[in-house]
Amino acid sequence: MKSLFRFLYELIGTPQPPSEIPVYRDVIFPNIGLINIGVSLALVLIFYYLINRAMGVATFNKTGNWALFLILNALIAFGVVVWQTNAQAVASHSYIYWLATFNAFYGLLWFFLFSLILKGGSRNASTTPF
């Protein structure tokens, strides 16, 4: 698990400053990775299964509505990194914001993948985004 997230997040280079590498690899990468996947999955479930199936809302199934959740997910992913790095008290460095941006990108990716997998089970939005 740790090595998977380390691989995913070190695609943009090793953490900076180098003295914080153990904390990033052992704590922050797994944390933000798991939270990111969890939040993406939760938002996909809310969009397809809560709003567009259980609640039966008929007017929230456009691509624009889906994109709203997609962006929301990316913002959460960005915020999670800032929060986690603060919580772990790592030395401040611009790397934190590169990592946050990269995590937001992964947020978009997870949300898109979960959408493809789970959209078929939705009643009103099974063809959103396509």
């Binding site: 704590v27 944390n31 939270i35 999955l41 479930l45 299964y49 809560l50």
Partner: peptide, 22 residues
């Protein structure tokens, strides 16, 4: 409805609780 969401909820909870902290 709740039971249909149960697996997903369980999965999400597991994922979140799997987080590491000091």
């Amino acid at each position: 409805l709740p039971s249909r969401f149960l697996p997903a909820l369980v999965a999400a909870t597991l994922l979140l609780s799997g987080c590491y902290s000091r």
